[in-house]
Simulated scan of single mutants.
Amino acid sequence: MMCLISIVGTGRVGASIAFLCVSNGLDDVLLVNTTKEKAIGESLDVASAIPANSKFSIRGTDDYSELIGSDIVIIAASVGIYTKHRAENIDHQVAMIKNIAKKIKKYCPSAIVLLVSNPLDVLTYFFQKTTGFSRFKVIGIASSLDTSRFRYYISETLSVPQSSVSNALVLGEHGDSMVPIFSGVSVGDNPLFSMIDSRDTITDNVRNYWRTLRNFKSRSQFGIAKNVFDVVDAIRNKKEISIPASVVLDGEYDEHDVAMGIPVIINQNGVSEIQKIKLDDTESSSLKKSAEKIRSDIKSVHD
């Protein structure tokens, strides 16, 4: 059965996600952008990547009414570029997400919504509150990207292939308070803690990955695009994927009324399970501080 994957925001990230969906023949793709020409241009470019045996298409528009029939909506829109931290444009980004949320509620209220825009956890929270959608169908995709970066730095630190690193997770804020979970990580058959002296250097590297990357290019696009694609593929093909992602919490990890990255299982219906994992005392304390940071950002928003 065909479905429609809609992507709101056709910058580098949105276009990269569209490319992966189209080139892998997932489904019809709609690009929505405030500048119609940008959406059409990206759709024309990506259309050249449609496999010869694919029955699917891609098109671009600035008309939100074309979201009707969308099964999955990905939000990768932004009002500006952050340079110091992900929450520096918070008021404008929240205003943007509320506006988008009202349109999605109007035109495709049954869609599963994947958020990519920053500040990721704050926007996930406000989108869910604005729409009243099930919290299990409003999912912020970023902690899985941070997890990829955590795994990368472990492999670089120990000079081992990433494939030898298992059970790496990053929870909490997609921001400077994110919490790499060291206690469950194994490298080969050995616990990570038996192979490193301190968690501080790796933690700092993971939190500052985006800043390091920006020393060499303007912003990241491919890592987050692949992480989003993996979730879309799982939803579309009725598979399960186990990743950390941001959802609004209602008692899980002793947190209420805040969205942050926690381990979840996602299937064709959205989040099917919030997984409870064991944390050591340092991780539990850091996760509590991360939740408070997100909650503080939420309260700072000026309507």
Rank of each mutant, 00 (worst) to 15 (best):
S6P: 00
L26Y: 01
V29N: 04
L31R: 02
K38W: 02
I40V: 13
G41T: 06
L44V: 06
A52H: 15
I58A: 02
I58D: 03
T61W: 09
I72T: 03
A76S: 12
A76C: 11
A77R: 00
V79P: 04
V79T: 13
I81R: 14
Y82E: 13
R86N: 11
I90F: 03
V94P: 00
V94L: 07
K102Q: 12
K102C: 08
Y107Q: 01
V113H: 02
L115S: 05
L120W: 07
L123E: 06
G132I: 02
V138C: 09
G140D: 05
D146W: 13
S155Y: 04
E156T: 11
V165G: 01
L169E: 03
E173R: 00
I181L: 02
V185L: 07
G188T: 09
D189R: 10
S198P: 07
T201K: 15
I202C: 05
T203K: 10
Y209N: 05
R214D: 09
F216I: 15
S218Q: 12
S220C: 13
D230T: 12
V232W: 01
I235A: 04
I235S: 01
R236C: 15
E240P: 02
I241A: 11
V258I: 10
V258M: 06
A259G: 06
I262R: 00
E273G: 02
Q275G: 08
L279I: 00
D280R: 00
S284H: 07
A291I: 05
R295C: 06
D297V: 09
